Amino acid sequence: MKIQLLFFGITTDLVGTNSMTFEVLENSSVHNLKTQLITQFSSLKNINDFAIAVNEEYATDDLKLTNGDVVAIIPPVSGG
């Protein structure tokens, strides 16, 4: 099934784009997606430190993805 990935902050530089269509297996969870992303983009090795939002709501690793979901990869933000 296909989902839309959105990358923010440093993740845009790490993967070379700010969005892409991405293929995942049926019944994939956010955890499965993270594993797949680390395999395809080794630069995302710290992905467990990033927030993941699915359809504009923060998601836990056990959330099941569905066809057409929009998944945002959001790195930690610091400032002051």
Rank of each mutant, 00 (worst) to 15 (best):
I47S: 04
P76F: 05
G9T: 12
N18C: 10
V71F: 07
F41M: 02
L37I: 07
K64R: 08
E57C: 09
L6Q: 10
I47K: 07
S28Y: 07
G80R: 13
T35I: 08
T66N: 13
E23L: 14
L14R: 14
Q36I: 06
F8M: 08
I47N: 02
L65P: 00
I52G: 05
I47Y: 05
K34G: 01
L25C: 09
N46M: 08
S28Q: 10
E23Y: 14
L65T: 05
S42E: 04
L63M: 15
N18F: 13
T17H: 07
Q36E: 04
D69K: 11
G68N: 13
K34Y: 09
S43V: 00
V77L: 12
A51V: 13
D69I: 03
A72E: 03
T11L: 00
F8H: 11
F50T: 02
G80D: 04
S28T: 04
V30T: 06
N46I: 00
P75L: 06
V70L: 13
I38D: 10
V15G: 07
D62M: 08
L65D: 00
E23F: 04
V71Q: 07
P76G: 01
E56T: 08
Y58Q: 10
S43L: 01
I47R: 06
T60A: 09
N18W: 05
F7W: 11
K34E: 02
T66K: 15
T17D: 07
A72F: 01
I47E: 04
N32L: 09
K2R: 15
N67K: 15
P76S: 01
